[in-house]
Design a protein around this nucleic acid. Structure first.
Lengths: 225, 225
DNA sequence: GTATTACATAACAATTTCTTCATTATACAT
DNA sequence: ATGTATAATGAAGAAATTGTTATGTAATAC
């Protein structure tokens, strides 16, 4: 994940600097542009791994900018995350889903910003070296050793429990229904009653505590975060 | 990306073997069929993650085959890449219109083949689904997480309430009558008294405040905006 | 071969969510 | 203003969903 370049496009210098500071702290390289036109120029030249794009900008706004990105053969696959002021009525964000891969509302919590960036990058990562170590809250989930570490203690979960936890944690925040979990953890053409998931969730909670996996009744389960 | 199954349909055994060899080297599982009919059969049985389809084949050609795939409820979402010797534009356009997702001309560079396959799969991978998030006024309604955020606070609505809110917000400004809401949120052939909607609206208002959903007396409800 | 562990499933208890209905309040037309 | 239709509200019971425990079987370790 390190060594990736992120282009930040925003007309407010303060925000540009703030984001730059936080991303550099995380090990990203950061490029800056104060409007859409310059953003496109820089993107074409440096091919960033991800673009953070403010929606409200003078001249060329974020929506126009992303359209240009999506039309450019070399840039079209670059993930774009929008920045937007919450309760910003003028920008019809509903319709913008077409070109963006996520969006984040200002004011920005920097931890949230970084974790969203990482999540989006993971989705787009070509090199696809599988991630074998997840850190979530106070858990360290190590798939190489099939071990979960928490507060200096090591927990040895059985395979299914471990893989379920790992998968949930790798989609942190997203609600996954039982069928999706079965398909991804158990395998596509395995036939198991879907309530089996419940029992495994319970065992995980028993061992690690019940504040990691949340139940969304009627929908599925979600790793907190 | 590994562990995916690819069905290759081509009438030339040499090409079948060549592609199989290269895809297996990349870690894909490979199924083979020497004509469209068999291809469909195998696809129905094994549900491959992607189909490589030669356009020029005796009996049923690739275009017919993809039409059948697109009509089959279980297969219609399977990505299809066409193979063809012809490099003329008409065929290309026609095939993409008929439901292909990409197009590769023979002779095939195997690295190109693999990278195209990966690209198409990435487009279809469910992790890169569009973002299910709405912003309306000061609400952030996130269907991935089944959470509503307002002023930094997260609200966990029960399923029906959430889905009702989401649906109303996704049609911001439009008045929807109770029956329409029931059909869209509850489902077409579910029988519940239409006043049930009222109760859910009330609960949403209780939790988030009553200035989001407006009542249009004698007609239905409308998300403000 | 036996003991142990992991796994899937079923049963039922606990909980939450959903639906209904009766009552009260409100908007609207006359 | 008054009456009528419609919606809001409160509260109860039904339905749905999940948590939990127990049990049988398969896989693995000893």
């Amino acid at each position: 994940m390190a060594n990736k370049t992120i282009l930040v496009v925003d007309d407010e210098q303060d925000i540009l600097d703030l984001i730059e500071y936080n991303l550099k702290k995380e090990g990203f390289k950061v490029l800056k542009a104060e409007n859409g036109e310059k953003g496109i120029e820089i993107a074409k030249e440096y091919k960033p791994d991800l673009v953070l794009l403010d929606i409200m900008m003078p001249k060329m706004d974020g929506l126009e900018t992303v359209e240009l990105i999506r039309k450019d053969e070399e840039l079209k696959r670059t993930p774009v995350i929008f920045l937007t002021a919450r309760s910003d009525e003028k920008t019809e964000i509903e319709s913008l889903n077409k070109g963006g891969d996520d969006f984040i509302t200002k004011p920005i919590s920097t931890t949230k910003l970084v974790s969203r960036i990482k999540a989006v990058m993971r989705r787009f990562d070509d090199s696809s070296e599988p991630v074998n170590k997840l850190i979530a809250h106070d858990l360290e989930i190590d798939k190489d050793r099939y071990v979960v570490e928490k507060g200096g203690k090591e927990f040895q979960l059985p395979r299914k429990e471990f893989e379920l936890l790992f998968f949930l944690a790798s989609r942190k925040g997203k609600v996954l229904d039982r069928q999706a979990l079965l398909n991804k953890v158990w395998g596509d053409n395995i036939y198991v009653v879907d309530r089996t998931v419940d029992v495994h969730v319970r065992k995980i909670r028993e061992k690690l505590g019940d504040h990691y996996i949340e139940t969304v009744k009627g929908v599925g389960y979600r790793f907190k975060g």
